[in-house]
Design a protein around this nucleic acid. Structure first.
Lengths: 204, 204
DNA sequence: GTCTATAACTTGATAGAC
DNA sequence: GTCTATCAAGTTATAGAC
């Protein structure tokens, strides 16, 4: 693995564990066993390294998060819950020390780092599109006036909130609960052909 | 306002805007116009100040977040959506620069600061209990086998995830969407078995 | 492309006078 | 209880040799 790739990979892991601000450049260098000059040759600033990490996450979304699930599950609705189960497994495996890497960085950086914020949003959108595709593949089972985009975004919302609570409580229960509730919602959507009740317009 | 209280209030605001790690003690001192010696008289370490801030949030939950909504809305289900609307208003007012203070700190600190993590969990629990009470007050309209605790936690999950997405996209749409979906879920729950709610206008 | 050394600065925390 | 002055350590980033 070349030096540039090693730096991105190391930074990705450390940002995931400690956040961006709490990860020092020196720590990255030590962990990657790379000299200071090398880093600043590839990445003029620490933020440039951050942006490279966020690009990397975009590249990893399908091979790491989506495709493995799609390979072993065919039903489009079950694929969605398969992806959610992947996050559950990660929480357990990492003993709640890591959540969704994008969610972590989103809250830390969306105020202060506009370029990073943009890439984080693109990561969210990529995730949502993958779920959206599943919903479109199951369109015949969903009420006609259900918005695939809106529902896919709601799945993302649920996942991110659930990961946050599970990590805070250091307990899987909030995550399992959220997935159960979402499953119940899906059951009710799939079950009856009744009208999607459009929510009231937001107050101004 | 005494110095101790002023320090807590200042730190609370700065942590909210910049996070814990990115807020320097010097910055707190300058903003609060307080000398270094005073701070360390009340709070031996920066973390002690953080814990005081988290205690403050627990105290503020009802007077600031819950009670104002309960005072102007009586229907228990509408109270829940009233609380959610409060967060929507905050996102707009603060132009997405601030989300849920607890959620922000939860992701930043739950790995590295166990004492803070515990207090963050207590804050979440307090919020959930307020929603849970609403659900119990509306128990006659909900299916018997619905767990008020589980559903209340799902509301919290949705709110936190929705705030995260809205801040990342710097757009209210993900938040409105999540609330709409949650409303639709509630409609399907309420409709299922019991009478139609007269507390709010029928969906258009 | 990589190394060493270091500049310029900020951090959290402390000591002691008053 | 508050002030001033200061500490040691850590931060990002740079310069110049190889």
């Amino acid at each position: 693995m070349d030096t540039r790739e090693k730096l991105i990979e190391t930074a990705r892991n450390l940002f995931l564990q400690n956040g961006y601000g709490n990860t020092g450049v020196a720590q990255i260098l030590k962990t990657a066993d790379v000299g200071s000059g090398s880093l600043y040759h590839f990445f003029p600033t620490k933020e440039d390294l951050l942006l490279a990490v966020l690009h990397k996450y975009k590249e990893l979304l399908h091979p790491m998060v989506i495709q493995p699930v799609f390979d072993r599950v065919t039903d489009p609705i079950e694929r969605i819950f398969g992806v959610l189960d992947g996050y559950r497994q990660m929480l357990v495996m990492m003993q709640f020390s890591m959540g969704c890497p994008i969610g972590n960085l989103a809250l830390e950086l969306s105020n202060s780092h506009p370029a990073a914020r943009q890439l984080l949003a693109e990561n969210f959108t990529g995730w949502r599109l993958a779920i959206e595709k599943c919903l479109n593949d199951a369109a015949d089972r969903l009420p006609e006036n259900v918005s695939a985009e809106g529902l896919a975004q709601f799945v993302l919302t649920t996942m991110e909130g659930a990961v946050m609570l599970a990590r805070t409580y250091r307990n899987l229960e909030p995550y399992n609960n959220a997935v159960s509730q979402l499953r119940d919602y899906f059951d009710r959507l799939l079950k009856d052909g009744t009208e999607w009740s459009e929510a009231r317009p937001a107050p101004t």
